[in-house]
Amino acid sequence: MDTNGPLIAYYDAQCPICRHEMAHYACHGDHIIRLHDANGDLPGDVDRKAALASLHVRLPDGRLVDGWPAFIAIWERVPGWGLLAWLTRPAPIRIPLDMLYRWLAPMRPRDRCRDGVCKT
């Protein structure tokens, strides 16, 4: 993986669990990861519905990865998480975890109100 530059994580900032997890990674600095709310403006090659359905990460070389591989890409870069990336990278582990993540992700909580504005 190219490590010359930050990752960009396209995630659902209306999900409190997602916000908390991404903030944990982001506290290591924007030279490692930059957060981008998938509810806002997105680059043309990032589909909003897909980005809200599962975590998407743009690698420094411009490629997009999503689902469990997106988490692996983050963990490879964030100090202290490399072992988890290494342990979950093999296909017999990664594929079932990705399937489980994609099944559970739609059940995550989402804020009904944001920035004091509620849709009715």
Results as ranks from 00 to 15, higher is better:
2 D>I: 06
2 D>H: 12
3 T>C: 09
3 T>R: 15
3 T>H: 14
4 N>A: 14
6 P>K: 01
6 P>H: 08
6 P>R: 05
6 P>E: 08
6 P>M: 01
7 L>R: 08
7 L>T: 02
8 I>P: 00
10 Y>L: 08
10 Y>K: 10
11 Y>K: 01
11 Y>R: 00
11 Y>S: 01
11 Y>N: 01
12 D>N: 05
12 D>I: 00
12 D>F: 04
13 A>G: 15
13 A>C: 11
13 A>R: 05
13 A>Q: 01
14 Q>A: 12
14 Q>V: 14
15 C>I: 03
15 C>W: 00
16 P>R: 02
16 P>A: 08
20 H>S: 13
21 E>V: 01
22 M>Y: 00
22 M>E: 02
22 M>N: 00
22 M>W: 01
22 M>R: 00
23 A>H: 11
24 H>G: 13
24 H>Q: 15
24 H>R: 14
25 Y>W: 14
26 A>C: 07
26 A>W: 00
27 C>M: 14
28 H>V: 03
29 G>S: 11
31 H>W: 12
31 H>T: 15
31 H>I: 01
31 H>N: 12
31 H>S: 14
33 I>D: 02
34 R>W: 06
34 R>Y: 09
35 L>T: 06
35 L>S: 09
36 H>N: 13
36 H>E: 09
37 D>W: 03
37 D>P: 08
37 D>C: 05
38 A>V: 01
38 A>K: 07
38 A>L: 08
38 A>P: 04
39 N>R: 13
39 N>M: 08
39 N>W: 14
41 D>P: 10
41 D>H: 08
41 D>E: 15
41 D>M: 05
42 L>F: 01
43 P>A: 15
43 P>W: 11
44 G>Y: 06
44 G>R: 15
45 D>G: 10
45 D>S: 13
45 D>Q: 14
46 V>F: 04
47 D>W: 12
47 D>S: 11
47 D>E: 14
49 K>Q: 13
49 K>C: 12
51 A>V: 07
51 A>E: 04
51 A>P: 09
52 L>W: 03
52 L>M: 11
52 L>Q: 05
52 L>R: 04
52 L>I: 15
53 A>N: 09
55 L>I: 07
57 V>M: 03
57 V>I: 14
57 V>T: 10
58 R>G: 03
58 R>T: 10
59 L>F: 05
60 P>I: 05
60 P>K: 05
60 P>E: 09
61 D>T: 06
61 D>G: 05
62 G>S: 09
63 R>E: 15
64 L>Q: 07
65 V>D: 04
65 V>T: 12
65 V>Q: 07
66 D>K: 07
67 G>Y: 06
68 W>K: 05
69 P>H: 06
70 A>V: 02
70 A>G: 08
70 A>I: 09
71 F>L: 10
72 I>M: 13
73 A>Y: 12
73 A>H: 06
73 A>D: 07
74 I>H: 03
74 I>L: 12
75 W>H: 09
